[in-house]
Design a protein around this nucleic acid. Structure first.
Length: 258
DNA sequence: ATGGCTGAGCTACTCAGA
């Protein structure tokens, strides 16, 4: 079973790239972030024609997440916790897999820049609530997959120039500690578990030739609860979609479980 | 190098991203 996460930076502007990507990599379940559209304008038909069902939590212009699946999922929920700003950043669902009931959590964490503003406070509060609610969820279900755009650089190795980001909302210790807190609840950062010293990225800025110079950062992650580590077959960052014309600034991260 | 690009909404320009 292939589960993939991709911040597409607008599902409508990216639809042709997304379709091509689905044909190439055949995900079973695809988590999308930053779809940047309301539910009614989501390109449902395009995904249906490829054999997928779309579960959407949209928002006008900004944010928005969706789960695209080639089989029916249960208990779709867009109220994982109360977002003070009512932004569409989480959609969850349940997947039956090898006698395990797995909670799927697709997230788009707030960016949080600039750090001396309410945007940064929102990110901190959002993460605080998220960690608390994951903790509660673990009591009911030990099998959890969290994936998405975390907007967190976990460690120095995860960005081309850490100095430039150590006081940024993506790299600040205070924020990285929230990530560690989540891990310490009983999760593995699957990419780092399988690649101890490898330096790969999931995001490159559009400007200044960041992609060409490989000035990127690893901010899109798959966290698996410890109970699911035995099911990991592979984890891969697929850089191909970032090299296409009219790309998203993020590239997909692909998990295969068996 | 705190904005060099990109997208949405809208139709001139702001807001947002990381």
């Amino acid at each position: 079973m292939k589960i993939i996460s991709w911040n597409v930076n607008s599902v409508r502007a990216r639809i042709e790239n997304i379709k091509e990507y689905i044909k190439d990599s055949s995900p079973d379940i695809l988590f999308l972030q930053e779809i940047k559209t309301q539910n009614e304008n989501f390109p449902n038909d395009e995904f249906n024609q490829m054999g997928y069902i779309s579960y959407i939590y949209g928002q006008k212009s900004y944010n928005g997440v969706a789960i695209i699946s080639n089989h029916k999922l249960e208990n779709i929920n867009t109220n994982f916790f109360k977002d003070d700003l009512k932004q569409s950043r989480i959609i969850t669902s349940e997947l039956k897999f090898k006698k395990k009931k797995i909670e799927l959590i697709n997230i788009y964490v707030p960016n949080g820049n600039p750090v001396d503003t309410e945007k940064y406070e929102y990110k901190k509060e959002w993460l605080r609530k998220f960690v608390n609610n994951v903790k509660k969820k673990l009591v009911k279900n030990a099998n959890i997959i969290i994936a998405g755009d975390f907007n967190i650089i976990p460690e120095e190795i995860d960005v081309h120039d850490f100095k430039r980001y150590e006081n940024d909302a993506l790299g600040r210790l205070e924020i990285r500690k929230k990530y560690r807190e989540l891990i310490n609840l009983g999760f593995k950062d699957v990419y780092r578990l399988e690649n101890k010293t490898k330096q790969e990225y999931t995001f490159w800025d559009y400007f200044a030739g960041s992609w060409q110079k490989n000035y990127g950062m690893r901010i899109d992650h798959f966290l698996l609860s410890n109970s699911l580590v035995e099911n990991i077959k592979s984890i891969k960052i697929n850089k191909k979609p970032r090299s296409k014309t009219k790309p998203s600034d993020h590239t997909p991260i692909e998990l295969e479980i068996i």
